[in-house]
Design a protein around this nucleic acid. Structure first.
Lengths: 146, 146
DNA sequence: GTTGCATTCGCAAGTGGTTGCAATAATTCT
DNA sequence: AGAATTATTGCAACCACTTGCGAATGCAAC
């Protein structure tokens, strides 16, 4: 089911602004910022406001259609949930971002449920640290970011 | 070794502002916000500015003397590192915050090191989710917060 | 197609946090 | 103790994001 159908089904209105935000999210190669989404939106709808972008992102998060990740840039990035769940390893030395399979956190999740009865919401987590390349002294420019 | 000694040893100046920020952090019962630290500082040094608080906190973080945790309030809270390391389980239904021993994340940390050679920096993490009380329908007012 | 109405939007102001810069003050050297 | 040096501060402007509010609009009912 598409984002549009889910929005409509839950009683939310399908406005032009929302459709353009969803389109920008789908067209994004990797993780996109609110500002970047706004640029796309603004190009085709010059009167649109960035607060609408933030409100739409908030709605899509609640509906679990997009996930939000803080890579430590001072701004947050968004990703369409259906494109696949994963986490990230962010190196604070070189900025390199590696993807981590969702299953890597399943043991922790199960542990928290068994021990504390706590259902952890671990979606699109960014774990910061120091990557193998930087640790071994071969600091290189990372190829993949965000 | 005290915060004061560590600052001085690393060549940082011991200003009144810094001493008052450190004092506020040590006096805090649990996790304190920058605004709360600023109130303490302002009471005894009316010309002090909140940017100094943020800059001091940034410095203390770099020296690993304080940790920063985002409980999802829209502001971040700080805690003296030497008071003990732990993580937090934050319920997004009732706001209850439970402490989680540092060791609970050791298996994950070791796994990331073995599999990816990645040294994860997992300090004072806030894991959001739904707590046992809320899941069982007995939603109560939480006693402990932050 | 028109009407009615709740939802959504644009705007402007506000919040938490950061930053560039000139003035100030902690430390070092004499 | 006083002068020189340079880290640190206060200030003001800025950034990412949020919010209150009145105006606009998508949608449902006729």
């Amino acid at each position: 089911m598409s984002c549009h159908e889910i929005l409509q089904e839950k009683g939310h209105r399908l406005t032009l602004q929302r459709m353009l935000v969803i389109e920008a999210l789908h067209n994004a190669v990797r993780h996109i910022s609110a500002e970047e989404i706004y640029e796309e939106l603004h190009r085709r709808h010059p009167y649109a406001n960035i607060s609408t972008v933030y409100r739409t992102l908030e709605l899509l998060k609640e509906l679990e259609l997009v996930t939000e990740t803080d890579f430590g840039e001072g701004r947050v990035r968004y990703h369409v949930a259906e494109k696949g769940h994963h986490h990230h390893l962010v190196c604070h030395s070189c900025g390199r971002v590696a993807d981590l399979e969702e299953t890597a956190l399943h043991p922790l999740k199960e542990g928290l449920l068994d021990e504390y009865g706590f259902v952890a919401d671990l979606r699109h987590l960014a774990i910061s640290g120091r990557c193998n390349e930087c640790r071994s002294g071969h600091e290189t420019e990372p190829k993949l970011r965000y």
